[in-house]
């Protein structure tokens, strides 16, 4: 069951992105940025947390979860530290993803050359 909900939710997010890409002049960069903003907006009032509870990892895979992780870490820190906590905890949860992407990119660019 959780596989089905994962499939449907992640598929629907991609479907919406594809519809925006095909029917407007926005590029893929615009759409990913918009989706990140939507993700952080949805988590402002903990809606995205509810979605993750119901849908499973299917809600963590789309880029919307990046925005959710950013604001989630910031708010968790802000509950201890007040308004400065927003700045201190911003990358708490996304640190692993960003670091992994940077490290893997660096390693692979050392070993591989462009194809054409």
């Amino acid at each position: 069951m959780i596989y089905l909900t994962s499939f449907i939710f992640c598929g629907l997010v991609c479907l919406i992105g594809q519809l925006i890409l095909d029917n407007t002049k926005l590029s893929a960069g615009h759409i990913t940025s918009i989706f990140v903003i939507v993700g952080s907006f949805l988590d402002t009032f903990s809606i995205y947390d509810q979605i993750i509870n119901h849908v499973g990892a299917g809600a963590l895979v789309p880029i919307t979860s990046f925005g959710h992780s950013l604001i989630h870490g910031a708010l968790a820190k802000a509950s201890d530290m007040g308004i400065m906590g927003l700045l201190m905890g911003m990358f708490d949860l996304t640190a692993s993803g960003i670091t992994a992407a940077i490290v893997f990119t660096f390693i692979f660019t050392l070993f591989f050359r462009p194809k054409n």
């Binding site: 499939f7 991609c14 499973g56 990892a57």
Partner: peptide, 24 residues
């Protein structure tokens, strides 16, 4: 067509989501 693009995006995006759930 746009419909075909949307369908492919839905299916492949869904598969990535399922892979994520299986891995987890």
């Amino acid at each position: 067509t746009r419909g075909q693009n949307a369908f492919i995006a839905f299916v492949t995006g869904g598969i990535v989501g399922v892979i994520g759930q299986v891995l987890t």
